[in-house]
Nucleic acid binder design. Sequence first.
DNA 1: AATGAATGAGCCTTCATTCAT
DNA 2: AATGAATGAAGGCTCATTCAT
Lengths: 193, 193, 193, 193
Amino acid sequence: MPRTEKQNAEIRERTKALILDASLRLFAQKGYHGTSINDIAKEAGISKGLAYNYFPSKQAIAEGIIQNMLKVGEELAKEFYKPVDPFERLDNMLEASFNYIKENEDYWKLILNFSLQPDVLDYAMKISKEFNDKLLAEIKSILKKLGVKNPAMEARLLGAMVDGVSLHYIIDKNSVDLKKVKKAILDKYKPAE
Amino acid sequence: MPRTEKQNAEIRERTKALILDASLRLFAQKGYHGTSINDIAKEAGISKGLAYNYFPSKQAIAEGIIQNMLKVGEELAKEFYKPVDPFERLDNMLEASFNYIKENEDYWKLILNFSLQPDVLDYAMKISKEFNDKLLAEIKSILKKLGVKNPAMEARLLGAMVDGVSLHYIIDKNSVDLKKVKKAILDKYKPAE
Amino acid sequence: MPRTEKQNAEIRERTKALILDASLRLFAQKGYHGTSINDIAKEAGISKGLAYNYFPSKQAIAEGIIQNMLKVGEELAKEFYKPVDPFERLDNMLEASFNYIKENEDYWKLILNFSLQPDVLDYAMKISKEFNDKLLAEIKSILKKLGVKNPAMEARLLGAMVDGVSLHYIIDKNSVDLKKVKKAILDKYKPAE
Amino acid sequence: MPRTEKQNAEIRERTKALILDASLRLFAQKGYHGTSINDIAKEAGISKGLAYNYFPSKQAIAEGIIQNMLKVGEELAKEFYKPVDPFERLDNMLEASFNYIKENEDYWKLILNFSLQPDVLDYAMKISKEFNDKLLAEIKSILKKLGVKNPAMEARLLGAMVDGVSLHYIIDKNSVDLKKVKKAILDKYKPAE
DNA sequence: AATGAATGAGCCTTCATTCAT
DNA sequence: AATGAATGAAGGCTCATTCAT
């Protein structure tokens, strides 16, 4: 008696996640080319062959990760628009961004990797840039409302700062205290009372 | 008639540089694992065997690049200490940093790569961190002299900003106008006249 | 309510035929090694596992095909002996042979394949040779009755001719008009009236 | 001191031939898909990797064989046109054809293989057909000169006969005496004296 | 009877490295 | 100093086969 369709779907869901998780970890750690399917299979606790039952190629695994990342990114973006007060909004945005980094370190590492080597997965970079552009526009609008002088440039600098902090955090977690950093950044834009 | 010792030394120097240059370009573009010795030999216009006459392994080539990078970095650092006036010094530092990025894009890409994947060449990250720490201390001291309130944190943020801008520049040159960015940053710290 | 035994037997019969048909088609088209169990299952519209419910191995499927082929061959052979008049018999034999080729192209392709690569299924070749020997003997006896001079050699040549025509037909159906060919061959042996 | 260019060319020539010879033997025996690069390397007495120094893919090896086959075929074709007397010419043609089969059994096996499975190397079949068409035209012209009644059909039958005999020879050398067969065929067309 | 998830050996191919010249 | 032929381990991927359901 074969498994029910639902059972199979569950199994597939679980195993797929297993593979994507393992791959994300390894790709982030050792890079795409530095990670072999063998590595992935071992890390995921499955056989090499099974990986190909779920993804037609190594590249497809990378793409699967990016798909997942997109979903997470969309969740993140929703956070941004919640409050109405511009300063609160900035607060929220920084909070969400730094949380994202903290909780999705590997995604960040990977997107950096792919951005630096577009030959592996060129569209990963595009996605990341699109996301960044949206973010930038939002920051700019916030800064404008806050009465900052040159909001376009200021937004760019703030964006760079956040990315720079994230980069430092990724390279050495212990060297950066994200909470304090956030506070310091916010202080710069706190409206006079 | 055999070559003189001096001629040989020159040849060796030149060929070594050829290999390192080619490797730097390729590693930066396609990553360490994504670049084969064959690729390097072709890019350098030499035979595969000759590469091994100069470097005992692929890893050694990477190390050679890092050595070179160190030298360039030291040159850069010298720039920092030239002027005495703290604002001029900040100006100089930013100028030098952005120039370095512009002219040594590949070095920067590579150090980022190695920092993200420490298993390839762990000490590359260490070097980069040491350099950064020095830089940070210097920035901090400058900002203090400029009367900035929380110089330690401010230095960290400024450092992150510079790295963030560099990152954006590397990923998409056209999206960043380094000159304008520098000016905008300096404006933030320009002493009141 | 479980199926009756009879129903089960029918199902088994049908599914087995399904597998053998699909395999024959694919083996003939892409060769034994070029066809995967997956291909077969898909072509037969069943699951991979089910194929193993009916045949213990890929090789066994090939053997099953050969068994079927034997049956068809025996049917064919019966045709040969029907008429009594030797010329009519020759006519019948050619008719049957060419019909067989036309209707069982894939069997012919496969037997050729296996004959050329005896390591896959050595006894396929034996079977085919046995069959051919019988046929040859029969042809020889017919030619003798028809008063042909060197019936042994002539039978061999006629056999080769039929196989050669069949080969050409298999490789390019459009290049051969089996009916005309048959007529031309018969003309050679038509008794003077 | 590197090898001279000539030395290298010689080595390459020799090793390439080694690989092609081994491949021809194995492909003919076990088929394209049934032969692994490992098999080829072992049969050729070289390492697996070296095979790829000479051919970019397994398919390319097959193509290399076909190229060689073409050369041999052209040599063969030259033989056909030597004598002027049509009967002698027929004699020559049969002699050359049967010799070719005897000495290039593997080529013949392979071309048959590829003709039966055009997905592997479709143009092998085309080549073989072109060659056959030329041959057929030539036979037809000869038969015409010999006063045969329906030279087009007769040529087709003769061609089929030769191919049939070749097929039988390939499948079981001992069952066919090519010399006697040739004589018997010639006898059919010997002009009355 | 039937399914398809899972395995592991083996396949084609690449690549760091060695070696004869 | 220089070449490129040669090697063998490892990489991505396929496939016959097994097994839980």
